[in-house]
């Protein structure tokens, strides 16, 4: 039912309105006295060195892909979880198999150090 999503719509409208209002108020009332010191990127009070935009490590990509795959897994689990009680032990075994196969990939990722940050 679309009516059930009305609170979410209200929340989205409120959040959007509030953020734009705050930005607008800052634009109107905030004093703007720029100087080079202020414009520089803040690096813990240090003098910034190097370029601000450098390539991020490949780790981010790996984490993102793993996230997507487990996200898709959630999509499969969701309709199953709705009828979990009706399916009984058989449904549990099916999902156990599904998760077990994906667990192989998780163990592989763990073993290969894909989840480690150095």
């Amino acid at each position: 039912m679309p009516e059930d999503f009305l609170p979410i719509a209200v929340l989205i409208i409120l959040a959007t309105g509030l953020s734009f209002t705050i930005l607008l108020l800052g634009q109107i009332f905030g004093p703007r006295r720029p100087n080079p010191r202020k414009g520089s990127p803040y690096e813990s009070g240090m003098r910034p060195y190097g370029k601000g935009q450098r390539r991020v490590p490949i780790h981010y990509y790996l984490i993102a892909v793993l996230f997507i795959l487990f996200d898709v897994e959630i999509i499969f689990i969701l309709p199953w979880a709705v009828v979990l009680r009706d399916l009984g032990i058989f449904g549990l075994i099916e999902m156990g198999l599904f998760v077990a196969i994906l667990l192989i990939g998780f163990v592989y990722a763990w073993k290969k150090g894909a989840l480690e940050w150095d």
Binding site: I58, L62, L69, E94, I101, L102, K112, A114
Partner: peptide, 25 residues
């Protein structure tokens, strides 16, 4: 659709291992 359901997990597994293999630390 039990077969596609279980095959989907194998597909996800293949994607996971492929991504780790390509972007292996």
């Amino acid at each position: 659709s039990i077969i596609p359901f279980e095959v989907a997990s194998v597909l996800l597994l293949a994607a996971m291992i492929g991504a780790i293999f390509i972007a292996r630390p």
